[in-house]
């Protein structure tokens, strides 16, 4: 299927026309075709069905398909737009486009908000923030006492929750990020501007004449 490089082109489920994807994202048609080269590699690393399963996503991120990580789970879930447990090519391109340097900051801010709104309540709540801090500490093998964690969470919350209602809404989040732009640092991948350089083989597999 999508795992076999062949001129007799048969695409996996979820494949979408690069021309359409380019029109809807920050990528060019060539970029999308180069991303397809990466997608083929990731989606056939364990289960050879041309879809990215969570284990394959974890393998690409951590070189370990069994590594549990709260944040990788959240990213996977946000990429999985159809919520069917796998990332299809169209979902992969549309989601990665958020991380493109040319994508408006407002989209990055909104994505980061959804990322941190663990329970999908439309707010980032104090308990969620503490849970994420504890997950980060656990992942990093760092130890901070509960008092210190509480202090960090309280201080951050007091700065972000400007309305003082015990939760951070999208508007407060956007204002907080404007005051702390470093929070969006990992929402931009400069490499995406040069994705065709990383996967030059897209030219061989292009289906678009003037790509």
């Amino acid at each position: 299927m999508g795992c076999v490089r062949s001129r007799h082109i048969k695409h996996p489920p979820g494949y979408e026309d690069p021309v359409i994807l380019a029109a809807e994202t920050s990528f060019t048609v060539s970029d999308v075709e180069a991303l397809y080269e990466l997608f083929k590699k990731l989606s056939c690393s364990i289960i050879k069905d041309g879809l990215i399963h969570k284990e394959e996503f974890q393998l690409a991120l951590f070189r370990n398909s069994n590594k549990e990580n709260l944040f990788a789970d959240r990213i996977f879930d946000l990429f999985d737009l159809k919520r069917n447990g796998v990332i299809e090519f169209g979902e992969f391109v549309r989601s990665l486009s958020i991380f493109h340097p040319n994508t408006p900051e407002a989209e990055k801010i909104a994505f980061a908000f959804r990322l941190y709104d663990l329970r999908h309540t439309g707010f980032i709540e104090r308990e969620e923030l503490k849970e994420m801090v504890l997950a980060l500490l656990n992942e990093s093998d760092l130890y901070l006492s509960d008092d210190v964690v509480e202090t960090i969470v309280d201080k951050t919350f007091s700065q972000a929750d400007t309305k003082g209602d015990g939760k951070i809404d999208p508007e407060e989040w956007a204002e907080f990020v404007k005051r702390n732009p470093s929070l969006l640092r990992n929402m931009t991948l400069p490499y995406l501007k040069d994705i065709t350089m990383g996967f030059p083989s897209f030219v061989m597999n292009s289906e678009v004449n003037d790509a």
Binding site: A60, L61, F71, Y116, V133, L136, E139, I152, L189
Partner: peptide, 24 residues
């Protein structure tokens, strides 16, 4: 540590470093 921004701390997670996807 009391001066740390919790979100700044969280953003250092390896799980949020998607650049790794592009490493050969």
């Amino acid at each position: 540590p009391a001066l740390m921004n919790a979100f700044e701390l969280i953003s250092t997670s390896q799980g949020l470093n998607l650049g790794t996807l592009f490493e050969k």
